Amino acid sequence: MRRQLKPDRGLQARMFLTMFLLAALYLFFGVVLWQAGVGYTGVALIVGLMLVAQYYFSDQLVLWSMGAKEVSPREAPELHALVERLAALADVPKPRVAIVDTPLPNAFATGRSPSHAVVAVTTGLLERLNPPELEAVLAHELSHIRHRDMAVMTIASFFATVASFLVQQFYYWGFWGYGDREDRDNRGGAMVVYLVSLVVWILSYFLINALSRYREFAADRGSALLTGAPGQLASALIKISGLMQRIPTRDLRQAEALNAFFIVPALSGESLLELFSTHPSLERRLAYLRELEREMEGH
C-alpha cells in the first residue's frame, strides 16, 4: 500500500514567495508606465494578443515545432493505456498522445488546461526506458497538466514579455529618435521607461526561471505520488541525462528552444548555471527524490 506524502510546505512557500515577488515587480513596472504618461496600451494589447495566441494554440505550436505526430490508441495501444491509467490517478481528462521521431530521449506536456492537453514522448525515450521508468516520466508530465503549469507560466511571463518588447522597441526606435531640444523631456522619459523595462526584464527572467524550477520539483513530487516509486523517476532522469551526452549536437540545438517543456533540458556543451536554467540540477532532483523515497518508506 502506498504511503501518502506530507505537503511540502517549504516548496509551497518558495513558489508563493517567487510569485509574490513577480507580482510586486510587475506592479512597480505598471506604476512607472502609468507615471510616465506615455500611451503603452497598444504595446500591452499586442503582447496580450501574442500571449493569448500562445495560450490557446500552445499545443499545436509546440507539436509543430518538434515535428510531433499525434497517435491513436490503435497505433500505440500500450502508451495510450499507460497515459489513460495515470490520468485517472491524477484525476484529469486523458490528454492527447503524440510521438516525436528523434533519438533525443525526452518527454513534454503542453496545453492551456487539463481538458486541452497533450503528452508527447520521443522515440529515443521509448527505446531506452523500461516500463516503470516510462510510467514515472509520464506521471511527471501528467502532474504538470494537473497543476496547470502551462497556464501559470504564461500568465507569469506576461509583463516580462511587455518589458522585453519595450526594451527592444526603445533600443531600435525609441529614445534614439529624440534629437531636437524640444524633445528632451520626451527623451528623458523614454530613457527612464527603457531602463526600468530593462531591469524588470532581467529580474523577471530570474524569477520566472526560479518558479519553473520549483514547479519541476512539484511535478517530480506528483510523479512519486502517482507511481509510489520515486526511485523509478530518479533512474529515468539518470538515463536521460547520461544519454544526452551521446545525442548529435545538431539535434540538441534544435531542441534547446523548448527546454522549458522537457522533463530534462537539452543542453549542448557545458551545463548552464542553475540560476539561468528552467530546471533544477540533476543532483538536486535526485536528492529530492531520495528524500521522498525515505518519507514513503517511513524512515
Rank of each mutant, 00 (worst) to 15 (best):
E274I: 13
M296C: 03
E256G: 06
L258R: 07
Q254E: 12
S268D: 14
L286S: 07
P265G: 13
E293M: 03
Y288S: 07
F262W: 14
S281F: 02
E274T: 15
S277L: 12
L289T: 09
S281D: 04
L275W: 05
A260W: 08
T278W: 03
R294C: 01
L273N: 12
N259K: 06
R285V: 02
L292W: 03
F261L: 12
L272Q: 10
L289M: 11
T278Q: 06
E297K: 14
P280M: 10
E274C: 12
E293I: 01
E256C: 05
F276K: 02
E283I: 05
T278G: 03
R290Y: 04
L286T: 05
E293W: 01
L292D: 03
R284F: 01
L292A: 06
S277G: 12
S277K: 15
T278Y: 03
R290K: 13
E283Y: 04
Q254Y: 06
L289R: 10
P265S: 11
R284G: 00
P265A: 12
A255M: 11
A266Q: 07
E291S: 11
L289A: 10
I263F: 07
N259Y: 04
L282W: 08
E295F: 00
P265I: 12
P265D: 09
E291M: 09
A257P: 00
G269Y: 13
S268Y: 10
P265C: 10
L292K: 04
E274W: 09
M296K: 01
P280N: 09
E295Y: 00
A255N: 03
P265K: 10
E293G: 04
